Amino acid sequence: MSERVIDQARHCFAFEQDFIGNWRCIPLCVRRKLDLSGVKLKLNHWLGLSQQQRQELVDWADDPKALDLFRDHLRLCTAAMADGMVTDLPVAIAEPWQCPDQLPDLLLEAAQRRRIPLVLDRWAGLSELERFALCKLARPGHDHHNLEAAFSEVLA
Rank of each mutant, 00 (worst) to 15 (best):
M1Y: 06
S2A: 14
S2C: 04
V5N: 12
I6M: 14
D7P: 08
Q8E: 15
A9Q: 13
R10F: 04
R10K: 15
H11S: 03
H11C: 09
C12P: 00
F13V: 02
A14L: 15
F15H: 07
F15G: 02
E16I: 03
E16N: 03
D18V: 03
D18F: 10
D18C: 04
I20A: 07
N22Y: 08
W23P: 00
R24V: 05
R24Q: 10
C25K: 15
C25D: 11
I26Q: 02
P27I: 07
C29T: 07
R31D: 05
R31I: 01
R31G: 03
R32T: 05
R32S: 10
K33C: 03
D35I: 00
S37V: 06
S37D: 03
G38F: 09
V39S: 00
V39F: 02
K40F: 14
L41M: 14
L41P: 04
L43K: 09
N44M: 13
H45V: 03
L47M: 08
L49P: 01
S50F: 07
S50D: 10
Q52F: 13
Q52N: 09
Q52S: 12
L57H: 02
V58H: 02
W60Y: 13
P64Q: 07
K65L: 12
K65S: 11
K65H: 08
A66R: 02
L67N: 05
L67C: 07
L67S: 08
D68G: 04
D68H: 12
D68P: 00
R71Y: 14
D72F: 14
H73T: 13
R75P: 00
R75V: 09
R75T: 04
L76E: 14
A79C: 08
A80G: 00
A80R: 05
A80K: 08
A82Y: 07
A82P: 05
D83K: 04
D83L: 10
M85F: 01
T87M: 07
L89G: 00
P90W: 00
V91F: 03
I93Q: 11
I93H: 13
E95D: 10
E95R: 15
P96C: 04
Q98H: 13
C99A: 06
P100M: 11
Q102E: 14
L103Q: 04
P104W: 07
L107P: 00
L107F: 03
E109W: 06
A110M: 02
A111T: 06
A111W: 05
A111K: 06
A111N: 08
R113N: 12
R113H: 13
R114S: 10
R115E: 13
I116Q: 10
I116W: 11
I116D: 04
L118G: 10
L118S: 11
L118V: 11
V119S: 04
L120F: 10
D121Q: 15
R122E: 09
R122P: 03
A124F: 08
A124E: 12
G125T: 06
S127A: 14
S127I: 02
E128Q: 15
E130V: 05
E130K: 09
R131L: 05
R131Q: 06
F132A: 06
F132V: 09
A133E: 09
L134Q: 10
L134V: 12
K136V: 15
L137M: 08
L137S: 06
A138D: 05
G141P: 05
H144P: 01
L147S: 04
L147C: 06
L147M: 07
E148S: 14
E148L: 15
E148P: 02
E148R: 09
A149R: 05
V154F: 03
V154W: 02
A156C: 12
A156L: 11
A156Y: 08
